[in-house]
Design a protein around this nucleic acid. Sequence first.
DNA 1: GTCAAGTAGTCTTATATAAGACCTGAAAAT
DNA 2: ATTTTCAGGTCTTATATAAGACTACTTGAC
Lengths: 242, 242
Amino acid sequence: MLSTGKGSISLYMQIRDMLVSKVGKGEWLPGSIIPSEVNLAQELGVSQGTVRKAITELVESNVLTRRQGRGTFVSMHNIDRALFHFFHISDNKGHKVLPDSNVLQCRRKPATRIESSKLHLEAGTSVIRIERMRRISDKPTMVETITLPADLFADLVEGGGYELPNTLYELYEQRYGITIHSADEQLRAIAASKHDAKILNLEAGTPLLEIERVALTLDRTPVELRVSRCSTRNHHYHNTIF
Amino acid sequence: MLSTGKGSISLYMQIRDMLVSKVGKGEWLPGSIIPSEVNLAQELGVSQGTVRKAITELVESNVLTRRQGRGTFVSMHNIDRALFHFFHISDNKGHKVLPDSNVLQCRRKPATRIESSKLHLEAGTSVIRIERMRRISDKPTMVETITLPADLFADLVEGGGYELPNTLYELYEQRYGITIHSADEQLRAIAASKHDAKILNLEAGTPLLEIERVALTLDRTPVELRVSRCSTRNHHYHNTIF
DNA sequence: GTCAAGTAGTCTTATATAAGACCTGAAAAT
DNA sequence: ATTTTCAGGTCTTATATAAGACTACTTGAC
């Protein structure tokens, strides 16, 4: 079961990877409690400290969440995580406010070359494309285009009786069992197109901050491409380097 | 010496903070080796594991660097760290190249209101202001304005016989004993001024990515304000969210 | 209802063993 | 005589185990 031979990775790493796969394949669902450190240790025939070290790494990478006296849980997407972890726009006083959003379009289309390349899809695969406008404190601030592989989010485009919520990652998790775990972002300055300008109520050509994000699951499969074009008149993108 | 009373922070935290202060006040210099875990444990009257936990946190926050079989060292600014940790511009294939730089100006001036606010200085304090142009693969790409408190970097403006190197953080560390440890960045899209346009060889009004960085020491004292305006025609700012 | 004891979980510290890096000196090769 | 190679010793960090302390919730007595 557990390899201990020469050249193998260490015990705690094997345990860590096993825990990851339990979460990854949905055996343990987001929000649910996992067995206690002592239980896992007994079951796997190792000491508590070893299990603990494995869990510690997963807590650091946000896969699990510990609560002293309660237990260890599979991390969930709640509004706080969306806000503090994945949303990087602040106002010029440094305060974060989650914008509300207005869906402008939601269509099923063949993927463009860029979309299929970023999402690792075959050329021409069906994707769902959502366009929305986001307001921060009632001012139109961002235009967002979100692309999803249609096979993973099959019934989304028909909008099966529910409205698109403000924080999509919660929806992906609860309704499609897909947990966004990390993301890669590329930022550029671009000129507002006429289309952007109209939606954001400013002049074409105004410089906008374009954020192109590829969101990944635990096993680093890309599942969402999101291009946001933001007016940075009253806001900015914030990043802390440790 | 070490507090163990009720309500106190834990042992390993006290040790961690003590180690930080040794680095912070220059008792242990960047690049030098620190006493071994066993030595420290003996000296402090705790076990190796406790010292180890303290050190682990500092390794994770990049204050210390471990090398198995060698020892633990105070982290240094080398070109790799500058490149991978503090420099976030990549070309559109995702490759990072450190730009070279051309100093355009280096003057001692009174701080503007923005500068004194961002650097926590009294209004009107003397600062050193450096303007430089940076090329990536021979193409002018960024205009940078760097502001430093004059008292900390006294002889820099006269350029005491040395050229400004490409990677300034190495200079701050080696010549002024100031180690940059973290940074806060704000990103915006702006229109190129005539001055920027001339230097970067493009048209005024072109959208540029403006990065405003405040660099901090270990104890979070701000010591550098750096405003970079980048053409994002061939490059972008890259950020990974874990 | 309130409070106290019990229980099940994580947190902290301590100790032992393993594995990696480097140095030194003797033996072997040139 | 000089250089190279190799083995052992010693110092380092890395990993694993164990035990007591702390915390949050539950249950039962009053």
